[in-house]
């Protein structure tokens, strides 16, 4: 297709979308009006299942299957990042230098760390009562853990963070959501139906499966973010391509042609024959 034709196709698409948008906006109810047909029904259904936060009811009860898809997207994208950012054959690890962090900052981080983790758990646990839920709380808790890198030292983070365990937790959270859904099938209704006792409105244990699904998502998201950042940190701090200088001067290189030292740890694996091989640069200088 020539660039000119492509431009015409694009113009047709843009014009079509613009026309549809214009028609839709014309027929929209006025901004911030008093009539919300969908909202009224959603709130009614939320109150019927004793979930105080109507948004949580929509996400984890009325539209729980959509949320399953959304968290599968997160799971898949983290998986993809782990594969793309893995240690390849021509890369090796260098030990990062310890960082000099000022005393007050370090003390603040060590005091704030449990507070942040607790806030994350609080946000997850109150998902059915107030704004928040598994996703938000999971991200808060995972970010809190990285205070260790930001304000203490990378090695302190590495000591408490077993990437292997967090990978397992990621999968367990994802599986937990799937398995909680089958409760509906066992009870003889549809997948992901809220079949548990609903509890008292406005308490932590209200809403049947909603808090449980929130907890599963919380585990999955927190673990996913930790695994994701672990790969980013690996690449930015530890892993260097042969010939590239790390945070510290590299040690003795491997023989030319083999592309430096062999990958350390279990994450490195030899990649296939395709892909740009830049072997031999380590000794080429």
């Amino acid at each position: 297709m020539s660039p000119r034709t492509r431009l015409w196709v694009l113009a047709c698409g843009v014009a079509g979308v613009a026309a549809l948008l214009a028609v839709t906006v014309w027929r929209l109810p006025p901004f911030g009006g008093a009539r919300h047909p969908y909202g009224e029904r959603a709130v009614e259904a939320a109150l019927a299942s004793r979930v105080a936060n109507a948004v949580a009811s929509v996400n984890f009860d009325q539209r729980a299957f959509d949320t399953l898809g959304e968290q599968a997207i997160l799971f898949g994208s983290v998986l993809g990042t782990v594969v793309v950012l893995r240690q390849t054959r021509d890369e090796r690890r260098v030990e990062p230098e310890p960082a000099g962090v000022a005393g007050p900052v370090r003390r603040y981080a060590l005091i704030a760390l449990p507070v942040v983790l607790l806030t994350g758990v609080y946000v997850v646990a109150h998902g059915q009562l107030s704004p928040g839920g598994g996703f938000q709380g999971g991200v808060v808790a995972a970010t809190g853990l990285h205070l260790l890198y930001v304000a203490v030292d990378y090695r302190a983070l590495k000591r408490v963070r077993s990437v292997h365990l967090f990978t397992l937790a990621d999968a367990a959270g994802e599986a937990g959501y799937l398995l909680l859904g089958t409760g509906g099938l066992l009870a003889g209704t549809a997948y992901l139906t809220d079949v548990l006792p609903l509890g008292t409105f406005g308490t932590l244990a209200s809403g049947g499966t909603v808090p449980l699904l929130n907890a599963a998502i919380g585990v999955e998201v927190a673990a996913a973010v930790v695994v994701l950042l672990a790969r980013f940190l690996d690449q930015a701090i530890e892993i260097v391509t042969s010939g590239e200088e790390g945070d510290r001067a590299p040690g003795t290189d491997g023989a030319p042609g083999t592309g430096g030292a062999r990958p350390a740890g279990g994450t490195g694996r030899a990649d296939g024959a395709d892909g740009p091989h830049r072997t031999g640069r380590g000794g080429a200088g």
């Binding site: 936060n53 948004v55 949580a56 946000v123 704004p131 928040g132 839920g133 996703f135 938000q136 991200v139 808060v140 995972a142 970010t143 990285h146 930001v150 973010v225 994701l228 950042l229 980013f232 940190l233 690449q235 930015a236």
Partner: peptide, 23 residues
């Protein structure tokens, strides 16, 4: 829409800058 705002705060405050700066 406080739920959306909370998602935005959780992701945008520390996580996004950390990923951008590491890259």
């Amino acid at each position: 829409a406080p739920d959306v705002a909370l998602s935005q705060l959780a992701v945008g405050t520390a996580l996004t800058p950390l990923m951008v700066l590491l890259s």
